[in-house]
């Protein structure tokens, strides 16, 4: 496994060179926070923020995505036939994605690519991306990623791991996959780092992981039955403050629920996949008018049961949370997954 040393000058040059082959995506300052955007020619990703406000999931699962088009015009030979919308999936390199966010997209992939279903929209976008992650040297106070089977230096979802090397703007780039290698070649990175670099990265990783003070445990949740957790008497209290908005679900990198809508424009129309949130009453409203999750606390319970129990039971790959802390920071009512996990784990 190769590790390159990239100084500031080669970084700028390398990005420009790779931009010839890849569409570059990276965090940029948007109004008062960061968001992942396609970078303009010559634009550098802004790697000064810890997290983007919204997770990078929109890269593979956009807020609104046209899936199909149709016509209801009887004179159109394709009348009433759904046609897949024409889309292009350029080769992309996502620069500066955080390791736990990249892991989160892998978790999304479990839902979108399994024995039962393959979602072409998700998969085409996902496969086109080379994930060039940036290790987190100073984790935020709400980061609990190490408890969630990932961490500030996690390599699982990445093709390249960048580590800020200490010197002004220098990086170590650890190549993790062939895809990552191809990107590094396109960027022209070739200066291999010294032999002690692995030890140095390990030491930085240890420091970063130790700096994470926020922890959760779900060992007892694993052993409890679904019904025991579901019927526990704390839910109404736990969920009291929750206003059932979609702040947490939309900020979350692992929430993947969507709603499908048809929109008509005269005799033409589109079928759209939109982000949806289990926090809303409409999410489970039946055609009959019955709603199995009529009360607000039932929807709050659903979110945490799904993340901490149903998903873990279904795939056996841990919980559906990477501990990025976005929901904790952004919740207007202070619904804190760490606290709820603790209550469930009692």
């Amino acid at each position: 496994m190769k590790i390159y040393h990239i100084d500031r000058e080669s970084w700028v040059k390398g990005l420009a060179a790779s931009a010839e082959v890849y569409q570059l995506v990276g965090p940029v300052r948007e109004k008062d926070d960061f968001d992942f955007k396609v970078l303009d020619k010559g634009q550098m990703p802004d790697l000064t923020g810890t997290d983007t406000r919204l997770s990078p999931k929109a890269l593979v699962f956009p807020k609104s995505e046209i899936m199909m088009t149709f016509s209801t015009d009887p004179n159109d030979p394709d009348c009433n036939i759904m046609k897949e919308a024409k889309k292009e999936y350029p080769k992309r390199a996502v620069i500066g994605i955080r390791p736990y966010d990249a892991r989160a997209l892998q978790i999304l992939k479990m839902n979108y690519d399994n024995g039962d279903y393959q979602d072409p929209y998700f998969l085409n976008a996902y496969e086109a991306i080379t994930f060039v992650g940036l290790a987190v040297n100073s984790p935020s106070s709400t980061d609990f990623s190490t408890s969630c089977g990932t961490g500030p230096f996690d390599e699982k979802g990445l093709d390249v791991l960048l580590v800020a090397a200490g010197e002004e703007g220098d990086f170590y780039a650890k190549i993790l996959t062939d895809k990552g290698d191809a990107w590094a070649k396109a960027a022209g990175f070739s200066k291999e780092a010294g032999s002690d670099v692995s030890t140095r990265i390990e030491a930085m990783k240890k420091t970063a992981e130790e700096a994470i003070s926020s922890k959760i445990a779900f060992d007892k949740i694993e052993k409890k039955t679904v019904l025991e957790l579901f019927e526990a008497d704390h839910w109404e209290n736990t969920a009291f403050a929750c206003i059932n908005c979609g702040t947490c679900t939309y900020a979350c990198p692992t929430c993947w629920c969507f709603d499908i809508q048809d929109e008509n424009f005269g005799t033409k129309g589109v079928r759209i996949k939109n982000w949806d949130s289990c926090m809303t009453g409409l999410f489970t409203l039946h055609g009959s008018g019955h709603n199995p999750r009529e009360h607000r606390y039932q929807r709050t319970r659903q979110r945490f049961m799904h993340k901490l129990k149903y998903f873990a039971d279904k795939y056996g790959e841990g919980i559906m949370c990477v501990g990025c802390g976005r929901c904790v920071r952004q919740c207007p009512a202070n619904i804190d997954i760490r606290e709820i996990c603790e209550t469930m784990n009692k």
Partner: peptide
């Protein structure tokens, strides 16, 4: 005015 998406 709600615009017709580019796709159609």
């Amino acid at each position: 005015i709600k615009k017709t998406p580019g796709e159609i």
